[in-house]
């Protein structure tokens, strides 16, 4: 049934996504005719989007334009009013995905040790305890993150808690990872460290990632493509590709290409802010 839907959508042909770079790459997520209102405010009205497979997409836009709302609807945290969201033609309930909250303090379970927090999604999947332990240990080893996982979350620093939170989202081996401003509650030093961790993770796994950010430099630095949204009702103002090679470093930040991409994004952003 979902394949039929996908077909119908294809033939309807609603390419609101600029074709940049998307050519030859099958989209991982297709959002079609998405509508959402909060009270009287129309946040999304007939919104279309293709998220390419295996890319890290940053979502950036004016305050209150619905950046988080978008990924929350895609990840099923809040219901859509209308429209369809498919993952390779499948529904959200048919795929494995991870979600990282901004507020790690409230997203982790303080009554469980870090290790059990990470393993919890496997428990929900009814994986037997021995296998849970093995898979969690394997993940920790693969990521090479040195943390005492016998601690309770409240005994860890903010960055460590967010790392645990990210590991929890990865333990199910998701196809796609959503991150809602994951570093905005951390201090600057920790934010820089966590950006590197996330970049490394992305390079290692090649997983599709959708990152909401309120920091333009971070959005551009981490992304393969920056999704710039307009004020609500949100449209795709631009879907800017970022071509800088990985691994990106602090040197990347001052390269002419990077600087001009960032300037372009800022231009688009300011145009959208003034439009109101």
């Amino acid at each position: 049934m979902s394949a039929q839907h996908a077909l119908r959508v294809e033939s309807a042909g609603v390419p609101s996504t600029p074709p940049v770079g998307g050519v030859g790459k099958r989209p991982h997520v297709t959002v079609r005719a998405l509508s959402k209102t909060f009270g009287k405010t129309v946040i999304y009205d007939n919104f279309d989007l293709d998220i390419p497979r295996g890319e890290l997409i940053s979502v950036f836009g004016p305050n209150g334009c619905g950046k988080s709302t978008l990924i929350n609807m895609i990840a099923g945290l809040i219901p859509v009013d209308k429209g369809q969201i498919l993952f390779d033609g499948m529904l959200l309930s048919e795929i494995k995905f991870g979600y990282v909250f901004q507020n790690y303090r409230e997203a982790l379970f303080p009554w469980m040790r870090a290790f059990d927090n990470i393993a919890y999604p496997l428990k929900l999947m009814k994986v037997p305890p021995a296998e849970r332990r093995a898979r969690t240990e394997a993940l920790v080893a693969r990521l090479g993150i040195k943390l005492d996982l016998n601690l309770f979350p409240y005994q860890m620093s903010g960055g460590q808690q967010q790392l645990v939170s990210i590991m929890r989202s990865l333990v199910v081996e998701p196809e796609i990872l959503f991150l809602d401003e994951p570093f905005s509650a951390l201090d600057y030093e920790m934010t820089l460290f966590m950006r590197e961790q996330l970049q490394r993770l992305f390079m290692d796994t090649g997983m599709t990632m959708v990152l909401v950010s309120h920091d333009l430099e971070e959005a551009v630095y981490l992304a393969d493509r920056v999704l710039l949204l307009s004020r609500h009702p949100a449209r795709v103002a631009d879907f800017t590709p970022v071509t800088a090679a990985r691994p990106r470093t602090t040197v990347t930040l001052s390269e002419p290409d990077f600087v001009s991409t960032k300037a372009h994004c800022l231009d688009v952003f300011q145009r959208e802010v003034r439009r109101a």
Binding site: A75, G76, L77, Y99, F101, N103, E106, A107, L108, F109, W111, Y120, P121, L124, M125, R168, V172
Partner: peptide, 26 residues
């Protein structure tokens, strides 16, 4: 109960009963 914690359990695929026993109770 913290809304984020309930959402976190839900987004990981916890059923209503699971959310009640694993999260709300604690």
């Amino acid at each position: 109960a913290r809304k984020t914690r309930l959402l976190a359990a839900k987004v990981m695929g916890a059923s209503r009963m699971r959310v009640l026993f694993d999260v709300m109770l604690l």
